[in-house]
Structure formats: structure tokens, C-alpha cells
């Protein structure tokens, strides 16, 4: 598969993503500078974590106007698979590719720790390798991960099974104590209505190989590769 990792000024998890996809999972992967305007030849793109544009104004608020974001929107609109991790998730929210917005963590602190998330929807192209309800242990590292959306949008997302990850205990119980940042409904990851764009606050690229002592994150990337292979076997029905 040909995968792209977008690099904004201030991205700092792009190399981790490239390492996991290229070295660990042996896929063809390239970095895409934010000034590029074409994603031609790529099967999926990842918006990595970091502090794009220094998080000035609001997280993701300035990155969404980067030249490459026009191409990302176009790519997503024709069904292309887009994964936003942490700051990448924040950028997708600001760009309107995902519903809602991020508020400062309830604790007002930057939180860097392992959390548990339950897989609410294992039928997305990003979670096909997971069992429904499976609990994943993944690291988070953010100050603005307190997800918010209005009631109407939340009920639409629930009806469409767009809530993919919810913070929970190691046993899978979704409790207020297991919510690290105050997110509405313990939400840690969501897709768009079509299911081809996923935003998640935890970092799967930081736990995708044995040497790191945790491989849960690998499931996300393997699911994506599975979904891309499957799509390649089917005749294309979408045209731009």
C-alpha cells in the first residue's frame, strides 16, 4: 500500500508513523509536506500528532488552512481513508471533516499516560482487526482532548455508530473515573458519517511493536491495510 503521512510545521509524530508503517509493517510510505497540493498515488493519509503552528489560537485552527488540506478534503470526499491522531484529530475537527470541537482538558493539565479505550464499532476500516467491545491500551499525550459536540450532533453520531472509541477501565467499563480529559460521553475517537475519516486522541503509532511492550496500536494500522487491500480487489465505483 502507498501511505502518506502529512507533515505540518510543528508535527512531531510523523516519523513515528512513518517508522511503524514502513519499518514495522513493511508498507510503502512517504511524508507529505503541508505545502503539497496533491495526494495522487496515495491509498490512505495520516495526519500525525504534534503541535502544528504552535497550537496558536486553537489546536488545529491554522493547520486546517495549509495548502495540503484542500487535497485532504477532496481525498476524503471521494472515500479516501484519512486517519487523524491527536493533533491530526484536532485539525480534522477544525477543518469540518469530523463533527465537534476540542476544549482544554478538564484538569487544565497536559496529560501523558496510558489509557484504556473500548472499541465501540469494530466494523470501520480502522478497527476491522478488533473485536466489538475489545479494550485497547493506548497512550495519550495532550492538553486539549476534551471532546465536545452539541446534543443533536451527538445523537446523530450515535445513530450512525460514529463513536468508535470510548475511554474505559481495563475491564471495559465506561465510567467517569476512566475519562482522562472530561470528554463528552467518554469519547476518544470518532468517524465521519461515511466512516472513511477517523480521528482519535490516543497514539497507536507509539505502541505498535513488541520492543515497546505494547502492540495494541498495531491493530489500527493492520485494519487499515486490510481495508485497503479489500478495496483494491473490488472495482472502483467512486469517481472524482
Amino acid at each position: 500500500m502507498n501511505l502518506g503521512v502529512i507533515v505540518f510545521p510543528g508535527s512531531n509524530c510523523d516519523h513515528d508513523c512513518v517508522h511503524v508503517l514502513g519499518e514495522v509493517l513493511r508498507q510503502s510510505v512517504r511524508q507529505v509536506w503541508h505545502k503539497e497540493t496533491s495526494l495522487d498515488g496515495l491509498d490512505a493519509v495520516i495526519l500525525p500528532g504534534g503541535f502544528s503552528y504552535g497550537d496558536y489560537l486553537r489546536t488545529g485552527a491554522i493547520a486546517r488552512f495549509s495548502p495540503v488540506m484542500g487535497a485532504v478534503k477532496q481525498f476524503a470526499s471521494v472515500g479516501g481513508m484519512v486517519l487523524g491522531i491527536c493533533n491530526g484529530f484536532q485539525i480534522l475537527l477544525e477543518a469540518g471533516l469530523l463533527p465537534g470541537a476540542m476544549l482544554r482538558n478538564r484538569s487544565l493539565t497536559f496529560i501523558c499516560t496510558d489509557v484504556y479505550v473500548g472499541v465501540e464499532n469494530a466494523a470501520t476500516p480502522f478497527t476491522g482487526r478488533c473485536e466489538p467491545g475489545q479494550v485497547l491500551k493506548l497512550p495519550i499525550a495532550h492538553a486539549d482532548g476534551n471532546y465536545y459536540t452539541d446534543d443533536v450532533s451527538l445523537s446523530q453520531m450515535k445513530a450512525n455508530a460514529q463513536v468508535v472509541f470510548r475511554y474505559c477501565t481495563a475491564d471495559g467499563a465506561v465510567t467517569p473515573e476512566a475519562n482522562p480529559n472530561g470528554s463528552l460521553d467518554n469519547i476518544g475517537g470518532i468517524t465521519n458519517a461515511d466512516g472513511n475519516v477517523l480521528g482519535m486522541m490516543p497514539h497507536p503509532e507509539r505502541c505498535a511493536e513488541e520492543v515497546l511492550g505494547n502492540e495494541d496500536g498495531r491493530l489500527i494500522f493492520l485494519s487499515m491495510i486490510d481495508a485497503l487491500k479489500k478495496a483494491k480487489l473490488q472495482p472502483k465505483t467512486v469517481t472524482a
Binding site: 485552527a61 488552512f65 476544549l103 459536540t149
Partner: peptide, 8 residues
């Protein structure tokens, strides 16, 4: 467009 996020 930029200075405020109308959602929040």
C-alpha cells in the same frame, strides 16, 4: 472562518 470556532 478563523478567529472563533462557532461550535464552542
Amino acid at each position: 472562518k478563523l478567529l472563533a470556532n462557532p461550535i464552542i
